[in-house]
Design a protein around this nucleic acid. Structure first.
Lengths: 348, 348
DNA sequence: CTGAAAGCGCTAACAT
DNA sequence: ATGTTAGCGCTTTCAG
């Protein structure tokens, strides 16, 4: 059994309240000699305040629930790392849930976060649209995903604008038939990237028919099989433009890792036979062979903004979802070896 | 303000205790009609029990603290994923801390886990040796690392035996000068892998002097710079065997990713100029170019064993660190393209 | 079968 | 400056 506050009080010959005053530095002052006695007792007994009891009493747990789809996706692993760090800086503990892009798991976690009275929630990617009705709607939250119709705060990279620039970069290399590897359409940010691909192709008078798009999971395997589909004769022959794509826009880095692997297995040379540009800008993208050209999300900025937004909402008792603020930040293109730039360096 | 149990009781026209009986299915039975009234009231008011208050009262939070060095290391990302899943299966929530291989951060987290009255702790890699004295020693814990002198439960892959087999595999390909990329020596499991490299080289009458070892962080960058060091003229000229290594044993996958990148930049062909075998067997190792040969840790087995051990200890009130049980499991070699096996398939 | 009540460890208002 | 005390929401023993 752990030592309690009253034991400390007894040992120090003071009342339990004084022990609290010493620990919390208030709300009432304590005379120096008394404080010394209390501190000695704490030290002697090895007393540690029961944070659970304190949280219960105070009504604040100093814990933030963080929901990510999967730490196996390096983008979300990095995100989690950065969030953890930022929260720690503000004295908060991160409690992480993994939703595996599953709407049910997702709301189960939000429910659990809410039940455990976490002070707030950060949701990295919302596969589940009807979050408003999950019963966890009463807890301050920030979404890191562009789900515009959603009534809550959100910070995210400007998926449409960034993807436009990524595709534009490929067009700038002279590519006309540019394929697209998309994510399952339940994920809104992914949808915007695909739409941007289409818009940018149309804008340039280039093809963007469905035969050029392959939908796949956000995983290496997904990317690899999507590539095989896209390059299969069946696929591009039935397109209105029966020409094999010479370039491809991949909506996430992790899919691109699979694409590169598949290319190597199929004997497709990158970037000569197929140029590749993806989206996320993970650290890992610098270690692929060849090095990936990718639109880097402003990860650090997203996180610091989101956390400060969340903490503000917590401070203001924004427990309802009013005052929707959506903030879109701008990414930047990291030039690698898969787009055909050679040894150039540039930002789109 | 969330709905409380008494409001439900009032609405249902029963006492608060009955509401508890209904929610918890005990400890006393409730008549069917009464139960129905209570359930209706719960539904009508949207009542959710305050898990914080319950945990406080019960003395069990149903939360396990998990400490990993970094989710950027894919091995630990996978580990976290698997642990999370396994815990969820048993009705526990994972609270994740990131220690960044930092002993201070490490004990800060253990302290926090203990203060928050988590039911148990899983520590993935212990950079900090003096854990016994961190004050968190009173909470059931399982270490996933081979820290033999440590007085607590531990489950881990048999680092020495597995690394022996990995190096043996390289020797089997005829390599004599085999370098080693090691981790900072504060990490015990890493040390055992290096010792195994040395033992296996000695056993075969092959060199294992310090000129063949480079210590580096567990990261891509660490691996890359360690490789450059090892292949630099300075390094192998000062070795007792002034011959450039033809093979290298890398103590973690993530370092090997950096090694492969560096090789490509240096024009070193893998496996022709340099064979590479690493340790961990991450999913990502299947997507490097060329595909990594790596000693796969029995991740799933480690986790299921560790979790059941931990839950047993929790159930038995093993809050002290008595009854040390260490369990070493066996990994298996995943053959890729970096060892020189060609299209063979085998287990060492 | 149900109600009343004690108390988990702590915070903070209210007394001295 | 310090002591006393009322709860936070819930579980569970003890009475009815």
């Amino acid at each position: 059994m752990p030592v309690t506050r009253s034991e400390v009080a007894q040992q120090a010959g003071v009342s339990p309240a004084v022990v609290s005053y010493v620990i919390n530095g208030g709300p009432r002052p304590v005379a120096a000699p008394t404080r010394a006695r209390v501190e000695a007792a704490i030290e002697a007994l090895g007393y540690r305040p029961n944070a659970l009891a304190g949280a219960f009493r105070r009504g604040r747990t100093k814990t933030i629930g963080v929901l990510i789809p999967s730490p196996l996706n390096p983008f979300y692993a990095e995100l989690a790392q950065v969030i953890e760090n930022e929260l720690l800086l503000h004295g908060y503990l991160m409690s992480m849930g993994i939703s595996t892009f599953n709407a049910e798991q997702d709301s189960l976690y939000l429910q659990s976060f809410s039940d455990r009275r976490m002070d707030g929630v950060i949701v990295a990617a919302n596969a589940s649209l009807p979050r408003t009705r999950t019963g966890a709607a009463d807890i301050p939250q920030v979404i890191l995903d562009d789900a515009s119709p959603q009534p809550s705060a959100a910070v995210f990279t400007d998926n449409h604008a960034d993807a436009l620039r990524a595709v534009d970069h490929l067009q700038g290399h002279g590519h006309r038939i540019i394929g697209c590897i998309a994510c399952p359409p339940t994920w809104t940010s992914g949808n915007r990237r695909v739409r941007a691909w289409r818009d940018q192709q149309r804008r340039a008078g280039l093809p963007s028919d469905e035969g050029l798009v392959a939908y796949a999971d956000s995983s290496e395997t997904g990317g690899a099989s999507a590539l095989r589909t896209l390059l299969s004769a069946d696929s591009y022959r039935h397109s209105r433009h029966p020409v094999r794509p010479t370039a491809i826009f991949v909506s996430t880095d992790v899919q691109a890792f699979g694409v590169l692997r598949a290319c190597s297995e199929l004997g497709v040379r990158v970037p000569d036979d197929l140029a590749v540009v993806s989206f996320d800008g993970t650290h890992r993208a610098r270690y692929t062979q060849p090095r990936l050209t990718t639109m880097r999300q402003p990860l650090h900025e997203i996180v610091t903004t989101a956390v400060s937004m969340l903490l503000n909402r917590i401070a203001d008792h924004h427990d309802d979802m009013s005052s929707v603020d959506h903030l879109a930040l701008k990414g930047n293109l990291v030039i690698g070896e898969t787009c055909g730039c050679g040894s150039m360096t540039a930002d789109g």
